[in-house]
Design a protein around this nucleic acid. Structure first.
Lengths: 358, 358
DNA sequence: GCACTCTCTTGAAACCTTTCATCCAAACTC
DNA sequence: GAGTTTGGATGAAAGGTTTCAAGAGAGTGC
């Protein structure tokens, strides 16, 4: 022990400040249990390789120290996340929450958790969430995109984050997609109304930038064509959004028409519109379906619960979500996964709003 | 170059396999831009300290390499998360999605992102989410808990994850909570019905394990007491859940009663019940409000949109969410934060279902 | 020219976990 | 009893970022 020794040590006062006050880590647990670091990790990740006695000691130490595994560190080292995200367009529309339920079902079955994010139809928020999720290195992203041609969206898969597009049929080869045949849905709705003898039919929907709105209208036109009716029988009422409030506005416009020019039936691009329309028309004295028959789209729970139960085009909502999640899981686990485009078939549910009582 | 040199090197074939194929990190960016690691980090976190020229070079390198910051590593080192979570009871109930909207507003204003989780009224799922979020070291958790006395819930704050309880008044001192005065809400509803001259009034709600259901009923009773009416004027119909389907069931029971014993008004513990009740009663030939007046609770969007617009007790849903998020932010940033219990006041919105036209 | 500032840049350490090659001792094998 | 197998435990290295004390140049004042 020479004096030199003492001087040789630089004054290591470099004290990094501890970011968080205290939080027991594997190290502390290992010390408390009298085992090594690696053993604690084994208890956490491969409990079967550690002897029951040691395991018990470690588990006791964890409990008494209130150990909480640091997921960031785990993920950094292990490189895998147990999380999957669904970026929805609008949490207020029951259609999407039902899809989310399907997603969660499938995820739970695979032992994963789901985080829900809502873009609220705001492209900036959507972009921010996509960046965040990519940085988090989530297992995969399910999304009903605002703009399906966004470059951000297209780049994700090539950088290692699988993406599945929900409720939009995508012509792009970089993702899977799950959708419902909207053209057919529109056709079903209008055929039904034509069979009931309606001649002048309104199509309520908008804006015309939304794929769904266009497809459903095209389906409506096709049904007219098939029945040999003139295209002018379809009166288009364009709305600014697919909301209850817009539906009410459309009802106002419709009810304002003279009875001999007013359509006798209306087909709405979704149920929210239809519910608004229904409410407004009834409150303005029109009888549904005698004066105006109404068909909605989505068959959300509130469609059936409306005081005049709504005829609607049903989509397999939960199945949509479940399938999307399953495609995502396949993509991230199966090395020779191939992108698919799954299309479901909608179904008409007839209720009082078109058929009257019985 | 002696032979010894060659032999001195142990054969370091210890090749750890690369977990992920390739993903440009700060290191690669630094190399590409010809700067040091620390500079790249500065561009990311303190752009103002790096010269414009260098910054441009680094940013160009990032873009061309498709650099995506690894959030796990960031969080591990920096110790802070930019995420906040809201664990909801039921995404299908518009009440909760509106609360979520408020949460997101406040979070966005503070530069944070929100992940939504749904427990679907399942205690195990709730527990799993809480564990996961704690392991993720999120900034904080907002929750409408299934069981507010859960030990897991109570332990979280002491381990460093702030919690705010939403829509439940908590007697515990370890969290903030934000709620609405449900007793008062019940009182408002019944007072309104009494003023309209109703004598026999049904209270539809359940199960009686839910705080809200009990409080709203107690409010109803208090209103009767205040008005000097006998308690037997309140006929209780207990339901199994707060859903549309259960509401329909209650409607069936109600409509089945002989007219002289049937209540002339019903107060439902939430709007989903009220909508189901409304639908069933109308379809069974009762007129609303002439034969049966109905008051709901929550004033969700579909209450107003029902064909007979529903009188309902409105809660400041978004404000609830916003306030909860703000309390959480205060707790995690303000060192001398004090737990609060905020209670909002509900408001009666009168519509056709009690007052008839006009 | 010299001593100082000031502005940027640098690189090693630290964050907490998982992984895996090694090691140890006890139990078999012949 | 020498050699081999086996069941468990070990600890150093690695993963990608942020932080911060210290270094490098350029500029300024006298």
């Amino acid at each position: 022990m020479s004096v030199d020794d003492a001087e040789a040590l630089p004054e290591r006062t470099r004290r990094r400040r501890a970011p968080k006050p205290h939080a027991a880590g594997v190290k502390a647990v290992a010390a408390a249990a009298g085992v090594s670091l690696g053993t604690v990790s084994n208890v956490l990740n491969r409990p079967e390789v550690v002897s029951p006695l040691t395991r018990a000691k470690v588990e006791a130490a964890m409990a008494s120290l209130g150990f909480v595994r640091n997921e960031s560190a785990r993920q950094l080292r292990a490189g895998s996340s147990r999380i999957l995200a669904y970026v929805m367009l609008d949490a207020g529309n029951p259609f999407f929450t039902d899809v989310a339920k399907g997603v969660e079902e499938a995820a739970q079955a695979a032992g994963l958790s789901v985080f829900l994010c809502t873009s609220s139809e705001d492209a900036d928020r959507e972009a921010a969430y996509l960046d965040l999720l990519e940085q988090q290195r989530v297992q995969g992203i399910l999304i009903t995109p605002i703009d399906q041609n966004s470059s951000r969206l297209r780049k994700l898969p090539s950088r290692g984050t699988p993406v599945v597009v929900v409720d939009r049929a995508l012509d792009d080869a970089s993702h899977c997609s799950v959708a419902v045949n909207d053209v057919l849905g529109g056709e079903l709705a209008i055929s039904h109304l034509l069979e009931l003898g309606h001649e002048r039919i309104a199509y309520v929907g908008g804006p015309n930038t939304i794929g769904q709105v266009i497809d459903r209208r095209d389906g409506a036109r096709r049904a007219l064509r098939t029945a040999g009716k003139p295209m002018s029988n379809l009166i288009e009422l364009t709305t600014g959004a697919l909301t209850v409030a817009e539906g009410r506005g459309a009802g106002q416009r419709l009810a304002g028409l003279p009875a001999d020019r007013r359509p006798t039936a209306a087909f709405c691009a979704n149920d929210l519109l239809a519910l608004g329309l229904l409410q407004q028309c009834v409150s303005l004295g029109l009888r549904v379906p005698e004066d105006l028959a109404i068909v909605g789209y989505d068959d959300i729970e509130f469609a059936e619960a409306a005081a005049v139960p709504l005829t609607s085009v049903r989509q397999p909502r939960q199945l949509l979500g479940r399938t999307a999640a399953e495609l995502l899981l396949d993509e991230s686990s199966n090395p020779d996964h191939e992108h698919q485009r799954v299309t479901f078939t909608p179904e008409l549910v007839v209720r009082t709003s078109t058929r009257g009582t019985l």
